[in-house]
Structure formats: structure tokens, C-alpha cells
Write a protein that binds this DNA or RNA. Structure first.
Lengths: 126, 126
DNA sequence: CCGAGGCATCGACAGGCGTCAATCTCCCAG
DNA sequence: CTGGGAGATTGACGCCTGTCGATGCCTCGG
């Protein structure tokens, strides 16, 4: 299978123009970047696994082994990325996972995972 | 480094011990971090959308607008994360997406995203 | 009204990561 | 055997980010 001597221009001829455009890739990367952190993954898991489905910052600092400002920062990132909701009740701020947020992301990744043969991915709108 | 929880027992009684453990979270975060980059997302998309399902580095530098070392670096990251395969044929190195890699990741995220009603993913499924 | 406590914000620091220029290695063509 | 080209590696630089201590805000209890 090494018979493309004349077609050596394969490297330069294929336009390869498909795929996500720059801003779509940037947006998806930012969403993924919000999850690409052990502390935030564990934080999400703790909140999701809570008996009431929500947790305040002081509940998370212990299990996570992080300081209160750091936990607050991670919560803000996850809220900003659309994975958590923040509800201030009295002195405490309760965070809860947004149902379907992770599933939506999983669906985007799964739909992009069908290369099949006819360039299925392309612009897989979010 | 690892501090010992002094058991402040602040506001809630729930110990919140569930969730992913540290190493699982770290591993998943590392996989996600490999995808959390616009250049790598577009690279994957370009390779997956290629007519032959594979592409060499010199095919990617143009569409990505990145230098050859940078593209090679991103390819290495994706190969290391289990999203791409590398096959050296002659002078060129052809990269192809591993079928099911993205789907597996999507499945992990999706399964963790089903809190159903109470606690869901991870441990303690009663 | 005043003290206490939870949380967000600020400033600072260290580490990681993306990027490129320069260089090296390897393989093929002649 | 020699030249050329593709790709990987190295070193350096700058930006981004995770982390913490200190501090301010805001709400509740007394």
C-alpha cells in the first residue's frame, strides 16, 4: 500500500476543510475545561451524591481537602459552565447539579464520535 | 500536604463521603483535559472527517493554522489519551481516530449524569 | 444594635500548558 | 552513497489556572 508516488501531493491536495469551526471548538473546549479538573469532578460527584441533591461550601471543603476560597472558586467555574446552580438561603449557599447538563455534553461527544465514513461530525450544532 | 480533616462539622450532618475517589477523578480529568483544547478538538474533527479516515501532520498544519511541532505535540497528546492511533508509513505518519473512544467517554459522562432522583452514579447504589 | 459566621472577592505565588524556532532522526529517491 | 523531506524532540517564552491567606460583604442570632 505504498503506491502513491505521483500522488505524493496528497499532503497538500486534501483540503480537509471539514470539522468544527474555530468558535465551536473553542466553546466546546471551554465547557470541557470546566470539567477537566479532579477537584471539580469530585465536587460535582459530591453534590450529585448528596442525599438532598445539594450542598453548601462548608460541606465540601472537608471531603475535598481544599480551602474555602478554592471550593468557592470551583463552584463558580461550574456554575459559569452551566453544570451547577447556586441558591443562597440565609447564610449558606446551596449548589445543585443541573439535570441534563452532563447528558447534553455526553450527547455532543457521542454524536461527534460517529466518523462512520461520510464525515458525519461536521457542524454538530450544540 | 494532605491535610487531615479536623472535622469541623459545620452546617450539615451528612458526611458527603460519596463520589469519585481521588485517583478516578484524576484519571477522568486527564482524559477530559486532552480534549479541552480547541486545537485538539479541531484536529480530531479533521481526522474523523477525512475521506480516508486518517491524516498526516502536514495535512493538518494548514487547516489548523499551527506550526508542525505544535500539531505533532497535539497528536501525541491525543494518542497518549487514547483518542488517536499513529501509523508510520514511509515518510509520513498517519493518524486515525480510535472508534468508540469518544463514545466511551460520552458514556461515562452520561452514566454519571443520571442522578435519577436520589444518589446515583458511583458507589452506593441501593 | 452588635457580634459571629458563611461565602465571595482580591492579591499573590507556583505549576502546567500551548506555542514556536531550531535541531535531530529517519526514511525514501536518485 | 548522498540529498531531501517529513516528523519528533528540545528549549524557551508567555499565558492561563489552581491554590491559599487575607479581607470584605451579608445575613442571622442574641
Amino acid at each position: 500500500m505504498l503506491d502513491q508516488p505521483t500522488d505524493v501531493a496528497a499532503c497538500a491536495s486534501a483540503p480537509l476543510a471539514g470539522g468544527l469551526d474555530v468558535d465551536a471548538a473553542t466553546a466546546l473546549a471551554q465547557t470541557l475545561k470546566a470539567l477537566a479538573d479532579p477537584a471539580r469532578l469530585r465536587l460535582l460527584s459530591l453534590v450529585a451524591g448528596s442525599s438532598t441533591g445539594e450542598a453548601c461550601v462548608c460541606d465540601l471543603t472537608g471531603p475535598l481537602g481544599l480551602s474555602q476560597p478554592t471550593v468557592s472558586h470551583h463552584c463558580k467555574v461550574l456554575v459559569d459552565a452551566g453544570f451547577l446552580t447556586r441558591e443562597k438561603r440565609g447564610v449558606w449557599a446551596y449548589y445543585a447539579v443541573i439535570p441534563g447538563a452532563l447528558h447534553t455534553l455526553a450527547d455532543v461527544l457521542g454524536s461527534a464520535a460517529v466518523p462512520a465514513d461520510g464525515r458525519a461530525a461536521s457542524t454538530a450544532r450544540a
